[in-house]
Computed example of a mutant assay.
Amino acid sequence: MNLAQFARRRYTPGATAIEPMPHLTKALGGAELFIKRDDQLGLTGGGNKTRKLEFLVADALAQGADTLITVGAVQSNHCRLTLAAAVREGLKCRLVLEQRVPDSYDPSASGNNFLFDLLGVEAVTVVNLGADLQGAMEQVAADLAAEGRKGYIIPGGGSNALGALGYVACAEEILAQSFASGVAFDRIVVASGSAGTHAGIVAGLVGNSANIPVTGINVRRPRAEQEGNVHKLALAVADLAGVVPAIAPETIECRDEWVGPGYSLPTPEMIEAVRMFASLEGVLLDPVYTGKAAAGLIALVRSGEIAREERVLFVHTGGSPALYAYQPVLAGAAAA
């Protein structure tokens, strides 16, 4: 693979850290746990979407866009980071927010909703679950065109083949860090949502013949549906990056046991995971993605499905600004 052939904006100087989690490892009494700190990526508040935006924003600039357009849930980390990238580049940004939980959008809410305003979003369009999201973004682009402006549409999560290159690059970064530190990982665990992060990591590992399994922890969809989504995108990004050999369907694992009642809806396991990471390792997770992914990691270690002798890398995809919108849930757990 030669990722240097793709235009890229750099929002993070150097690699994000890989750190041991000795206290969580001891508390669980199982596998040796490490964390990849992609919550410390550049742009406002950090998170995995920064890696995707490095490639997507480079393409937007090459096309002469003056406005970034994207979509996400009402507390979307992706929308926050897309807006932050627009600010960095001197562009405008318009957001389409999907109410995946009825009546959940509150423009005066804390978390990312507050940051949308603080960062200067130009306009927000709110739609309900099941709306034509691509159509809504295309309408925003058409409105801009009528004003003589040029919008650039970024899919939800930045998860197309171009955006997923960010996590092909991350896979190569992990392998280089593993070699430099002398720590070989037996498994990688990551949240699996819009599929770009999961698919990019798999493509990058396959392209480097790494033979490291990736366990995705679903945050929204049933297992079979999500595995199909990730596999389809992994094939697309692999084709774009020139990955050989082809990625087999059985390479993709997406566990759905910790989704709970639905996307963004709290679960006792998520609350426990968020509190454990904070109190044992000083690491802030988010309640929507990394909290549920960590809940899956903890359960797999406790059950022994992740074996005691394994070295496991948990990819922290960020999202902690959304914590503050869930303070009543998490504070209630503290008082219980």
Rank of each mutant, 00 (worst) to 15 (best):
A4G: 12
F6S: 05
R8T: 14
T12E: 13
G14K: 03
T16R: 06
E19A: 15
H23A: 14
G29A: 11
G30I: 10
I35H: 07
I35S: 08
L43A: 12
G45W: 03
N48C: 05
K52S: 06
K52I: 03
E54S: 03
F55W: 00
L68Q: 05
I69H: 05
N77H: 03
H78I: 02
T82Q: 02
L83I: 03
A84R: 00
G90T: 07
C93K: 00
L95A: 08
V101C: 12
P107K: 01
P107H: 02
A109Y: 00
G111R: 01
L115E: 09
L115W: 04
A123Y: 05
V127T: 03
G130Y: 13
Q139N: 08
Q139S: 10
A141F: 12
A145R: 12
E147M: 07
R149W: 15
K150W: 09
K150N: 13
P155R: 02
G156D: 15
G158F: 12
S159T: 11
G166R: 03
C170P: 07
C170H: 11
C170K: 03
A171L: 06
E173H: 13
E173C: 13
I174V: 15
L175M: 07
A176G: 15
Q177L: 09
S181W: 10
F185N: 09
F185Y: 06
D186N: 15
R187P: 04
V189G: 14
A191I: 10
S194Q: 04
A195F: 06
A195K: 04
G196L: 02
A203G: 14
I217T: 11
V219C: 01
R221N: 08
E225C: 04
H231E: 11
A234N: 05
A236V: 08
V237C: 04
A238R: 07
A241T: 14
I247A: 11
C254L: 01
W258V: 10
G262A: 05
S264M: 06
T267H: 02
E269L: 00
I271S: 07
A273T: 09
M276Y: 11
V283C: 13
L285H: 04
P287A: 14
Y289D: 04
T290G: 12
A293D: 08
A293K: 01
A299K: 02
V301G: 08
R311Y: 13
L313S: 14
V315D: 13
T317N: 11
T317D: 15
T317F: 13
P321I: 14
A322Y: 01
L323D: 14
Q327A: 11
P328E: 10
L330Q: 05
L330N: 01
A333D: 13
A333I: 04
A336C: 09
